[in-house]
């Protein structure tokens, strides 16, 4: 049968875009049926047109580039800090006792709750924008590094002590490799958090550049097509980044299947 010739990968892609297409169809039907005025819900075609206009202007790519750069810097700082902090709390029960309650209390405050204070302290600058993105990445990476380090199988630690591995050697040879799957999960979650907080950072700490500013601009002008185009851009880019990180994680993981079986 011919249909079997379609590869699994193609099938997955077709499956993935089927639902957005159906949704767009429903959206169009909704408008044809006259349930909504074009002012509140422009037809899909108008949004598509907006995309063409946006992408034909080099300024839009620049907005995207600025947003990506902002996320990358924040995410990098958050990852590094979260990894080190999670490692410290995982290795030392004393450090956990001192820092964990404070950490868990602080992370209950939603990022948007920090915005007024951050603006008052740092003003409408790049620093506070990057700062809240890194803090957003910091939480899940800290938590997952911590649990990864704490859950290193006792058998591996015993093996290390048989061979006399201590301190940095122990961390390098046993603890980090054993905790790596958990750390990788933290990094994926951290990236997703960074990207969602990007919007908060760009809309609430006003700036001239970034995808978020375009959504805000759409709102100011009551240009719903622009707002929707902005939202789609953010969604697609975020998804692309997630997939990219997953691929990197898979590459790191390849060949090593963590087995806890006895």
């Amino acid at each position: 049968m011919k249909r079997l010739a379609i590869s699994k990968k193609t099938k997955a892609i077709l499956g993935g875009i089927a639902f957005p297409i159906v949704l767009t169809g429903l959206w169009q039907l909704f408008i044809f049926a006259g349930f909504s005025s074009a002012r509140f819900l422009p037809p899909p075609f108008k949004v598509f047109q907006k995309f063409v206009i946006l992408f034909s202007d080099p300024a839009y790519s620049q907005h995207i580039a600025v947003s990506l750069q902002r996320v990358m810097i924040g995410f990098f700082i958050g990852t590094l800090a979260g990894f080190l902090f999670g490692l410290l709390m995982g290795l030392s029960k004393t450090a956990e006792k001192i820092f964990a309650p404070f950490f868990h209390a602080v992370r209950q405050v939603p990022m948007i709750g920090w915005i007024p204070l951050i603006i008052m302290w740092f003003g409408m600058n790049e620093l506070p924008r990057v700062l809240i993105i890194s803090v957003a990445a910091f939480y899940p990476i800290t938590l997952n590094t911590f649990s990864g380090v704490r859950n290193v199988p006792r058998e591996y630690l015993e093996l290390a002590s048989v061979y006399g591995f201590k301190g940095l050697t122990l961390i390098k040879k046993i603890i980090i490799p054993a905790a790596l799957p958990s750390i990788a999960t933290g990094i994926s979650l951290g990236l997703a958090m960074s990207w969602s907080v990007l919007m908060v950072a760009e809309i609430f700490i006003q700036t001239a550049f970034g995808v978020g500013t375009q959504i805000q601009k759409g709102r100011d002008r009551f240009d719903i097509a622009l707002v929707i185009a902005g939202i789609i851009t953010v969604g697609v880019l975020g998804y692309a980044m997630t997939v990219l990180v997953q691929k990197i994680v898979q590459a790191v993981e390849r060949g090593r299947v963590i087995s806890t079986e006895k």
Binding site: V162, G164, I174, I258
Partner: peptide, 20 residues
């Protein structure tokens, strides 16, 4: 006094490190 290279050990579970 503690483990040493004069003794080797084989456990019941092979205890090979899966990432190596």
């Amino acid at each position: 006094i503690g483990p040493g290279s004069d003794r080797g050990i084989v456990f019941q579970d092979h205890r090979l490190l899966p990432w190596l």
